[in-house]
Structure formats: structure tokens, C-alpha cells
Amino acid sequence: MKSILRTIVACVFFFTACVVGASEPTAEDFNKAFAEANAARKMAGELGHEWRDTAKILRKAQETATAGDLKKAMELVAEAKLQGEAGIVQAKREGALWEGRVIR
């Protein structure tokens, strides 16, 4: 019985730590995530598939982080990264599909 209780308490501490950790990103977390998102944006751009708002979202993320709201800044960076990665996927997919649309 004691061991079960100990396990439950340990789990509660662990998940609490995770939630607290996730809700309070550090500047280091932000910089790392920003660099990854920006790299995805650049790669999409090199392939000719950067989306219109990605750079704007990254600028907004930087401003938000500078203002001290790292949680919101991380959300923006995640959105930008998703856009950059989607642009890369779009470029690869279109490389194979565009010819099928040519008027014959």
C-alpha cells in the first residue's frame, strides 16, 4: 500500500513539474525554438514556397519575447515553424504534382 502511495505522489510531482515547466519557457527555450522556426522558413523560401505571414509571425514572436511574454512568444514561434515546415512539404509535393495540371 505504501509503495502505491509513493508511486502516486511521485507521479503527481512529475506531472506538476512538467506542467510548470511547459508553462514557463526560458529565454534559452525561446531562442532555440526561434532558430528552428526561422530555419524552416528559410528552407521553404529557398524552395520558392515561403508563406506570406511566416516572417511577420516571427517578428511578432521576437517582440513578444522582448516584452517578457515568453509563453505567448513560444506559441507564435510554433505557428511559424508549422508554416515553414508546411511550405517545405508543399514544395516537395508540388514538384511531383504540378505537371498533372497542365492543359493538354
Binding site: 508563406w51 506570406r52 508554416q83 508546411a86 504534382l97 504540378w98 495540371r101 497542365v102 492543359i103
Partner: peptide, 21 residues
């Protein structure tokens, strides 16, 4: 130029051809 015309781009995933063909 032809490839550009028929390639989907952007968040809305549209090619020039989607609207004008």
C-alpha cells in the same frame, strides 16, 4: 514559367491555374 503557373503556393494552397484555368 510553366511550372510556376501550375504550382500551388501559399497557405491557401492555390496555383495561378486553379483560379484562371
Amino acid at each position: 514559367g510553366k511550372k510556376f503557373y501550375y504550382t500551388k503556393r501559399g497557405q491557401l494552397n492555390f496555383a495561378c491555374a486553379d483560379c484562371h484555368v
